[in-house]
């Protein structure tokens, strides 16, 4: 069992403009190690934009994102080594099989020693699908491949955009356990989801957009 150091992700006076619309303005929040933060909001409220800003993929109109008190733009390497991001798109190659996809991830980011690609896939219920090119998998199975990336990386901060879309009931329940376990190890999670998720004893926060 790994244990992450104490860390926090903060947003300070964040605002985001998409086209002509102000999506959110002077948004402040803070997520500590061991917490799960759920972002709520109607369609188009800016949930995805917020998560992309927090990753550093998009720039906010104003405000800054701090990782352990330092702006993420000033320590991109430090922040990205502790970041696991699953966005709307799965970020997997349809031509490659799940194992090949995970191998590419392994070479790019810090990974856990106690988990290999096969067991990560087994954990997300893809045992027996390792050799099948991802484009032949169902939408839910592709999503599982994307999520198995999280099990493999040593990232402390998980930023997840609708991770449970297309997952079946059992998949959602299993994934909640994974998130719960990550928080127990001192990880922090920011998540958007239109499905109600429950996390037993874990400290949860809400951001309403």
């Amino acid at each position: 069992m790994i244990h992450f150091p104490d860390s926090r992700l903060e947003g300070i006076a964040l605002s985001c403009v998409r086209g002509e619309n102000l999506l959110f303005d002077s948004l402040d929040f803070s997520v500590q190690a061991g917490e799960i933060c759920q972002v709520f909001g109607a369609n188009g409220a800016g949930k995805t934009s917020l998560l992309r800003i927090l990753c550093g993929l998009a720039l906010p109109e104003s405000g800054q994102v701090l990782w352990n008190g330092v702006d993420i733009d000033e320590q991109r390497e430090v922040f990205t080594s502790s970041l696991g991001y699953v966005g709307h798109q799965n970020g997997i190659k349809g031509e490659l099989n799940p194992l090949e996809n995970l191998a590419a991830i392994r070479a790019l980011t810090a990974t856990r020693d106690d988990m290999d690609a096969e067991s990560a896939l087994e954990n997300v219920g893809l045992y027996g699908y390792e050799d099948i090119p991802c484009r032949y998998l169902s939408a839910g199975q592709k999503r599982r491949v994307a999520l198995s990336r999280l099990l493999l990386t040593a990232a402390q901060c998980w930023i997840l955009d609708e991770p449970v879309t297309a997952l079946d009931a059992q998949g959602v329940a299993d994934f909640q356990k994974v998130l719960e376990n990550h928080a127990k190890c001192g990880g922090l999670v920011l998540i958007t989801s239109h499905q109600a998720l429950t996390f037993g004893s874990i400290e949860t926060r809400r951001i309403e957009l």
């Binding site: 190659k93 590419a104 392994r106």
Partner: peptide
């Protein structure tokens, strides 16, 4: 647990290998 990312060289090689493989599938 390894908290440091693999060296840049292996990331470079991994991308090269991945893209070759993808090119093979999209001949």
């Amino acid at each position: 647990m390894s908290t440091t990312a693999p060296p840049l060289r292996s990331a470079f090689v991994a991308i090269v290998r991945r893209d070759f493989r993808l090119a093979f599938y999209n001949r």
